[in-house]
Design a protein around this nucleic acid. Structure first.
Length: 476
RNA sequence: GGCGACGUGGCCGAGUGGUUAGGCAGCGGUCUGCAAAAUCGCUUACCCCGGUUCAAUUCCGGGCGUCGCCUCCA
């Protein structure tokens, strides 16, 4: 298996620090608002990575934190007039609801920054002691120039940073490059006691403190959105490696952004959709599937049309599964065991090859569709009892992989096609009966009239040997 | 300004030094009372200019374009 490492800008063979075990830490969200599609992407991507590693039989320990104290939280809670605790509790719940809708598995640990204040203070003290940090007026700053390899993750030199001319020229800091580890609290701000007076943690230190406490360092995988490479992850490395004198994390993975019209979706541009917005119109499975149609490192263009396309792709999968459920071996059926075995081997091989290549989900999905196509062909070639039984078990196995790793094909076809029923089911059944009566009497005009009426409502009728079935699609 | 990524058929989106990605949409055939689904066939692409090579969409150089990071951000 190869994975791309931001640290080296290359795909590298994946070799965990301890055999058979993977410890991973992903930066979570700052909880002051509902999650948007960008958060959904990061969550789903790392959920799939975690699940694929488990599929490969690694024992995975997965940590994703909540940042529950920072400037934006303080600002927002003041605006609304509730405490930071109430605010963050509310949005942690909102986050958890979104994640469970998207079938994102709960991490093994979900630490909150404010639960690790002591560890952060200790880390600050240690850094001061070692000469990597200093206190000024109740703030504590990290001395960037003291850390030799600063910039190694984001591949920039200290000179580059200064040339950017955007570095904060603070009159308090010794050097404009230095960043805050601990901030003195102002009046009426949340505060914790510290050796430097009442204050609160800086942004980056929480992840250093929580990851080393929970996982120990070095750990295997550190992940997050591309925007965290600098300064967040760069600063985490500086803090942790300076204090511990050893490597912080081995592989650094970063997911690409969600774009709207080629532009990054972000709060400041105001061009974002929340997960909840999307789930008003689309099944969460559609969103999840959509997020996996592009490689995790590439930008993903978000649009309603693309979601509709994702929904249609899932329709194709569920349709095939539905056909399988309906199939019954008949007298003139054939033994297709060989074809079925080829089908299984082809999928497993293609799927793992794709996923082994830096978690290439679009390619993995292509293999799924090849599987679906072959499945359709086998069914239309009428497998006999024996080969059909094997076929069923193969499909079951493939479905399990899709669900366990990608988190898709969550439902039974019936459930999928009923979810969008825009007409009362009783009325529908009545109409189907009426139509079948008309067909029996060769009154095809009437039969077609009913079909057309239902089609308008998004309901497709299928005349099969077992009777008339329906599949409902959303009317837009 | 510095650093980086990307530019594939109507759309989305993988990938490769020479052989069909896949999905969606469209057209035609089979099937069907008609449909739907499925299947078969068609529409066969790789920003521009040089270079390397028997051969480049794929490697190298240049150009153009788009985007990102350098400030809070998944």
């Amino acid at each position: 298996m190869e994975i791309y490492n931001t640290m080296t800008l290359k795909k590298e063979p994946f070799e965990p620090i301890n055999d058979g075990e993977v410890r991973m830490y992903v930066c979570g969200v700052t909880v002051y608002d509902d999650c948007h599609i960008g958060h959904a992407r990061s969550s789903v991507v790392f959920d799939v990575i975690r699940k694929y590693l488990k599929f490969k039989n690694y024992k995975v320990t997965f940590v994703k934190n909540f940042t529950d104290i920072d400037d934006k939280i303080i600002k927002r809670s003041n605006e609304i007039g509730i405490s930071w605790k109430e605010l963050t509790a509310k949005y942690i719940k909102s986050h958890d609801d979104d994640m469970s809708a998207l079938l994102v598995e709960k991490p093994d640990y979900t630490p909150k920054a404010t639960e690790f204040i002591n560890e952060m203070i200790e880390l600050c003290e240690k850094l001061i002691e070692k000469g990597y940090a200093y206190e000024k007026n109740g703030d504590v700053y990290f001395k960037v120039r003291a850390f030799e390899n600063y910039g190694k993750l984001s591949h920039r030199s200290i000179d580059d940073l200064l040339a950017g001319a955007r570095v904060d020229v603070s009159e308090i800091k010794d050097d404009p490059l230095d960043f805050a580890l601990w901030k003195k609290s102002k009046e009426n701000e949340p505060a914790w006691e510290s050796p430097w007076g009442p204050g609160r943690p800086g942004w980056h230190i929480e992840c250093s403190a929580m990851s080393s406490k929970i996982l120990g360092i070095p750990f295997d995988i550190h992940g997050g959105g591309k925007d965290l490479v600098f300064p967040h992850h760069e600063n985490e490395i500086a803090q942790s490696e300076a204090s511990e004198g050893k490597m912080f994390a081995k592989y650094w993975l970063h997911n690409g952004f969600v774009n709207i019209n080629k532009e990054k979706m972000s709060k400041s541009l105001g061009n974002f959709f929340t997960i909840k917005d999307i789930l008003k119109e689309f099944d969460p499975e559609v969103l999840r599937y959509f997020l996996l149609t592009t490689h995790y490192r590439s930008p993903l263009d978000f649009s309603r049309d693309n979601l509709i396309e994702a929904e249609r792709a899932l329709d194709r999968i569920y349709t095939a599964l539905d056909e399988l459920l309906t199939y019954r071996p008949v007298k003139k059926s054939k033994n297709l065991t060989e074809d079925v075995k080829k089908l299984e081997a082809g999928f497993i091989e293609g799927f793992t090859r794709s996923m082994d290549d830096d978690f290439n989900t679009p390619s993995a999905l292509a293999h799924l569709f090849e599987f679906i196509k072959s499945l359709n062909i086998i069914i239309s070639n009428k497998p006999d009892e024996e080969s059909f039984t094997i076929l069923e078990s193969v499909v079951k196995k493939v479905r399990k992989i899709c669900l366990d790793v990608l988190g898709i094909i969550q439902k039974e076809p019936e459930e999928w096609f009923k979810a969008n029923l825009a007409i009362d089911e009783e009325e529908l059944n009545k109409l189907i009966e009426e139509r079948n009566l008309a067909r029996k009497n060769k009154n095809f005009a009437k039969a077609d009239e009913i079909r057309d009426y239902l089609k308008q409502k998004g309901v497709e009728l299928l005349d099969t040997l077992d009777g008339t079935k329906f599949r409902a699609k959303r009317v837009r």
